[in-house]
């Protein structure tokens, strides 16, 4: 199993690389290295949806992601958002994502809290019995999220002021996590082993 990673200018991918290299004992392949096709693609996530999507479009990475049949894609935070239909993280209306999922990414501030950013450890609840051992505290840092609707692809949720948001989703092996496994200690390591192992 070979793992690749998408890097882009605004994202700090060092921590993500470090975690995956440690857990899976291999060096990650940069997606732009076209000589090797990874089985699993990691889309890390810090930054602005529109800015990053434009950069991926310009570099031809969007096309590569849409056309390559990766066994799994694992999106973290913004990476999870990019897998979805669209995001309103722009003043000029919605921006299209990769459209693997059918969800819209919205500002968490408008939906539940006055604070613009949700930072810190929060409890993630996996709803299916067979994955319940993964429930626990994970580290979040984001301003945009996906409302929980209870659809089949939604595997785990977290709450902000009793409002539920999607923490983990998986639709046809396009897996998204809202929190940062690379900053979630043991729990994060356990999670990526299970979801990608």
């Amino acid at each position: 199993m070979r793992i690749g990673i998408v890097t882009y200018s605004s994202s700090n991918t060092a921590n993500v690389k470090r975690l995956f290299e440690k857990v899976f004992n291999q060096r990650l392949i940069d997606i732009q290295d076209l000589s090797i096709k990874p089985d699993i693609l990691v889309l890390p996530g810090v930054g602005n949806f529109k800015f990053v999507k434009n950069e991926l479009d310009k570099k031809g990475i969007t096309k590569l992601i849409l056309e390559s049949n990766f066994e799994k894609i694992f999106g973290i935070c913004l990476g999870m958002h990019l897998l979805q239909k669209d995001s309103n993280e722009s003043l000029k209306g919605s921006i299209k994502g990769f459209n693997f999922g059918n969800k819209s990414v919205i500002s968490i501030a408008s939906n539940s809290i006055q604070k613009r950013v949700h930072t810190g450890w929060n409890y993630v609840k996996f709803i299916h019995q067979e994955m319940s051992f993964l429930s626990g505290y994970y580290y979040f840092s984001h301003s945009f999220g996906i409302l929980w609707t209870g659809e089949k692809d939604e595997l785990a949720f977290y709450e902000i002021n009793e409002k539920k948001f999607v923490a983990v989703s998986n639709l046809n092996n396009k897996i998204g996590v809202q929190f940062h496994p690379e900053l979630s200690g043991r729990k994060g390591r356990e999670l990526i082993k299970i979801l990608l192992g």
């Binding site: 949700h118 930072t119 810190g120 450890w121 929060n122 409890y123 505290y137 979040f140 709450e159 902000i160 002021n161």
Partner: peptide, 8 residues
């Protein structure tokens, strides 16, 4: 909501 934080 996020937990109280204990920072080293």
């Amino acid at each position: 909501m996020t937990t109280k934080r204990i920072i080293a």
